[in-house]
Simulated assay, not measured.
Amino acid sequence: MTKPVEASSELNSEYLLTEQQLAGYREDGHIYLKNVATQEEIAEYEPVITDWVLKLNYHDKPVSERDTYGKAFIQIGNLWEKSEDCRRFTLARRFAKIAADLMGVDGVRIYHDQALFKEPGGGHTPWHQDQIYWPLDTDNTITMWMPLVPIPQDVGTMTFASGTHKLGYVSKQGISDESHKTLGQYIEAKQFPTVSYGAMAAGDATFHAGWTMHCAPGNPTDSMRKVMTVIYVADGSRVAEPDSKARESDLRNWLPGCKPGDLAASPLNPLVYSRNAK
């Protein structure tokens, strides 16, 4: 068994989940957890993550002149490769163990991280399923979504369609106006309950399964909505044959050197938690 990457001691302490929380996640495909990171930890990591996001921001047009996807957020992936501080955050054992516990697996690897900063006046994030982008032959995937600043009620967290993680593939549409319409109509027709957790404190987090349908509102405030996400995949998962250009792109970017049928375990996918590690 490969030894997990060591994260900082501050983020190694355990966050215990109740049986009710575990059962709720597996039924709904999403959960909201308070104080996953402390205020002191957020104060340490937020400035570093923000600095890298602003440094790597690729947008060269005002929000009003972008397409729907571009209006949704500044999206920067694999910050953990950029600095030791970002690495400690993304590879934190505390976060990884929560992911493993919620999925009920023995170990998890990083698929990749993403900073998702929604600018003042930023647009909504359309309904979508994350896993349409991922060439992974498993349903055991999960994303941690953690605000680095307080999220007020008028910005809010994502809205989740409970139980949709059990459906697998529903639509191959990427995040777009079309996906928002198609999946929104599907959710309404099938009467899936929708849940939004409203205001969140910095360091709180939601976790959602890769197939869970979700969307997010725009940002009507004059403050940046700063969110850091980490995507985990169960250790032992294999690479699927990519069936779209989006999955071909993900295979190149996040699973370099891996081929269909290989373990999803490139150098960019370190093992960050294992129950069997000494």
Rank of each mutant, 00 (worst) to 15 (best):
G168N: 09
Y169F: 11
Y169V: 13
V170K: 05
V170W: 03
V170L: 11
S171M: 10
K172M: 11
S176C: 08
S176P: 14
S176M: 03
D177T: 10
E178G: 00
K181D: 14
K181P: 05
T182H: 08
L183E: 04
L183G: 11
G184V: 07
G184R: 01
G184I: 07
I187S: 05
E188A: 14
K190L: 02
Q191F: 02
F192W: 03
P193S: 07
Y197T: 02
A199D: 01
A202I: 03
A202R: 00
D204R: 00
A209E: 10
W211R: 03
W211F: 13
T212K: 03
H214E: 02
C215A: 10
A216M: 03
A216N: 04
P217H: 09
D222Y: 05
D222R: 06
D222E: 14
K226F: 03
K226P: 06
T229Y: 00
T229R: 00
T229M: 04
V230I: 15
I231T: 15
A234P: 09
A234F: 09
S237Q: 12
S237M: 11
R238H: 15
P242T: 10
P242M: 08
D243V: 14
D243E: 15
S244M: 12
S244G: 14
K245W: 06
A246I: 09
A246L: 13
A246E: 15
R247T: 15
R247Q: 15
E248T: 12
E248Q: 15
S249Y: 13
L251V: 13
R252P: 00
R252M: 07
R252Y: 08
L255T: 13
L255V: 13
P256T: 12
G257H: 06
G257I: 13
C258R: 15
C258L: 05
P260H: 06
P260I: 02
G261L: 08
D262N: 13
D262F: 07
D262P: 13
A265M: 07
A265Q: 12
L268S: 09
L268D: 08
N269T: 10
P270T: 07
L271E: 09
Y273K: 08
S274R: 06
S274H: 06
R275N: 09
R275Y: 05
